[in-house]
Amino acid sequence: MNRRHFLRTAALAVAAFAGRAVAAPLAAAEKFFKEPPWRRKKPYWGYAVDVAKCIGCGRCVDACKTENDVPREPFYFRTWVERYVLRRTGEVSVDSPNGGLDGYPAPREPESIAQSFFVPKLCGHCENSPCEQVCPVGASFKTVDGVVLVDRKYCIGCRYCIQACPYGCRYFHPELQVADKCTLCYHRITKGLQPACVENCPTGARMFGDLSDPESALTKFRETERIQTLKPHMGTEPKLVYKGLHKEVR
């Protein structure tokens, strides 16, 4: 091989690498920004909460525990409702007695309150779910229709997923000794029913639907409202979105 030949080959190789270095990320970015997963798969489940509609009655929390045999003790919840009280002094207090299951008494010292509201919480079934990422054995996983589930027969009970969830949505099931979480009532939604919390919400604050259906109420809601997720800086891309979230909500 003479020098010229060598140089030409080297130049071609460099050009090929450089071309790929430019083209590959562009292609990936194009795919990423233009094609959310629900364009690829039908159905693909999502969830939305309209904060302004929640009255803090706790029906959803009770229904969830009933439907899913969630332990009744006040430290195990697949969904719960938080109350925020913002005082004129700038003090922010949050509470969730028994996860809001028994409803809320009126807040004390009403004259000093600037505003107060309820925020229902549940698993966001994140697109980039950290719990699924850290599960050492593949007992936490995302189904093809976008729901994050736990395999009770395979979970080893290491609780790494509970540590990894930024939203506190997982707990350690005291009887089964495995991690447990919201399934979006997978046994209901796969039969055409609503999740128990949505079914029992009297005000329509909770919405469930198919993101892959352009005509679904959820898709319309996401298209028309200014929606937001919790802790967006985590990059988890929850499929649970909120309308009317206050900055104090974490």
Binding site: A63, T66, E67, N68, G138, A139, S140, F141, K142, T143, V144, L149, D151, R152, K153, Y154, T183, Y186, H187, R188, T190, K191, L193, Q194, A196, E199, N200
Partner: peptide, 29 residues
């Protein structure tokens, strides 16, 4: 390793059916 492991993704595919088969408590409107 369970037979259905890895059929869909890095998990036990049968788990999906087991979760689908859980009993209903609310009948729906």
């Amino acid at each position: 390793v369970p037979k259905s492991f890895g059929r869909i993704g890095h998990y036990r595919a049968d788990a999906v059916d087991e979760i689908k088969a859980l009993p209903l408590r609310y009948a729906g409107e």
